[in-house]
């Protein structure tokens, strides 16, 4: 493993994974609506939140990538 990996890179990687998973789940729910939807499901907060986490994750992974000064 490379030395001196920033904690912000780990954070970015985790947010990226979570963002993709939550976004995918939200998109899947568009075509397969749950039997018991949450309150204000029409907002599709999971899609918005998934996009936000993915973007933040990508930004942090890029900015704090190992080996990048």
């Amino acid at each position: 493993m490379p030395k001196n990996i920033s904690i912000w890179f780990f954070t970015g990687a985790l947010l990226l994974i979570y963002g993709v998973l939550i976004l995918a789940t939200g998109v899947w729910a568009l075509s397969h609506p749950p039997e018991h939807p949450v309150v204000l499901a029409s907002l599709h907060i999971d899609i918005w939140w998934g996009v936000l986490l993915t973007l933040i994750g990508l930004l942090y992974c890029w900015k704090f990538a190992p080996g990048k000064e």
Partner: peptide, 12 residues
């Protein structure tokens, strides 16, 4: 949490 968060967000 259960009121507003569906699968995925609930896990988060």
């Amino acid at each position: 949490l259960a009121r507003y968060c569906g699968p995925g967000l609930l896990g988060l």
